[in-house]
């Protein structure tokens, strides 16, 4: 005999699915870079308020992730990498994702204003708007430079962290922005090289689809060359020092070398070994930013120039 009240509907979302809606892996990068921005900034901030500020920046980042999942649920359902996300998997409705995104956006901005200052809060609001509207809604589906523009949204958190302490912008925070901004395109284009069909199936104009894979390889190498001077320049400012410069020099040399290797390969060779070089480069690019910011943190700890 079956239970009279047995529920035969679709699987229901659990608490973890709502967390997944906030893109926790992206959030971890946001938390880390915002923390470093806050840590190296000149000035004093109460540790508890600093903790709260980082938390609200992270929630703001999560909110823009939810808004992204609301708008992009159609293409997320097509791409292998994203089809298990809560909205395309049918666990959470689109409206619910939108409501959570808007609600958390407002909450995070107001709370950051109270915890730190209203300049930082306005900056966070701008970042959410930039990622959700300018990138996700407007440019992602219309230009192959989508990754470049999206990278700006990911590059703002260290500037927000800096603004929490200083209440403004400095050359150091602009260079931290540049570090993430110019790093993002080669990072994602390397991913696009070995995730072959995903983006073309979804109709997202990735550089690999619009300009071809040869051109993408050239772009990756070019961006590593543009990135390096900014990374080194950051080491010459008040937040830099010998430790950071040494780490940055090694990482940039390796990054340029990796970009060069990608440039020299053709598709036949890449396909033959299952995109080993591209995959290795993608993994290294994750360490690249992490180690740069870790070096900044360590330099701040031991004292700079």
């Amino acid at each position: 005999m079956t239970e009279a009240n047995a529920y035969e509907g679709p699987v229901e979302a659990q608490f973890g699915d709502y967390i997944a809606l906030l893109k926790p892996r992206v959030m971890s990068l946001v938390v880390f870079t915002a923390f470093v921005g806050l840590w190296v900034a000149p000035g004093q901030m109460d540790p508890f308020l600093a903790f709260c500020s980082i938390l609200f920046i992270a929630i703001g980042g999560g909110a823009s992730g939810a808004l992204n999942m609301w708008y992009d649920s159609d293409i997320d359902a097509v791409m292998r990498r994203t089809q298990d996300r809560p909205v395309p998997a049918g666990l959470i409705g689109r409206e619910e994702a939108l409501a959570l995104g808007i609600g958390l956006s407002i909450l995070s901005v107001m709370m950051l204003g109270l915890a730190a200052n209203w300049f930082a809060a306005g900056f966070l609001a701008f970042t959410i708007f930039f990622y959700a509207v300018v990138y996700t809604i407007w440019l992602k589906r219309s230009t192959p430079q989508n990754i470049v523009i999206g990278g700006a949204a990911g590059a703002f958190p260290p500037m927000i962290g800096w603004a929490c302490v200083t209440g403004g912008i400095g050359i150091e925070s602009l260079l931290m922005f540049a570090l993430v901004f110019f790093w993002t395109p080669p990072h994602f284009w390397a991913l696009a090289l070995f995730m072959r069909d995903d983006y073309s199936k979804a109709g997202v104009p990735m550089l690999t689809v619009t300009n071809g894979r040869r051109s993408t390889r050239r772009h990756i190498f070019a961006y590593t060359l543009v990135l390096a001077p900014f990374a080194i320049w950051l080491g010459l400012t008040s937040v830099g020092g010998p430790l950071y410069l040494a780490v940055s020099a090694v990482l940039n040399a390796l990054f340029i070398l990796g970009g060069w290797r990608i440039l020299r390969r053709d598709e036949v060779a890449a396909e033959a070994d299952g995109y080993t070089v591209e995959k290795r480069y993608f993994r290294f690019s994750l360490y690249y930013t992490f180690l740069h910011f870790l070096a900044l943190l360590a330099q701040g700890w031991v004292g700079g120039w």
């Binding site: 009240n5 529920y7 659990q14 608490f15």
Partner: peptide, 9 residues
């Protein structure tokens, strides 16, 4: 049964 399922949430 619904309450049980929603407990975690």
């Amino acid at each position: 049964e619904l309450h049980g399922r929603r407990r975690g949430r």
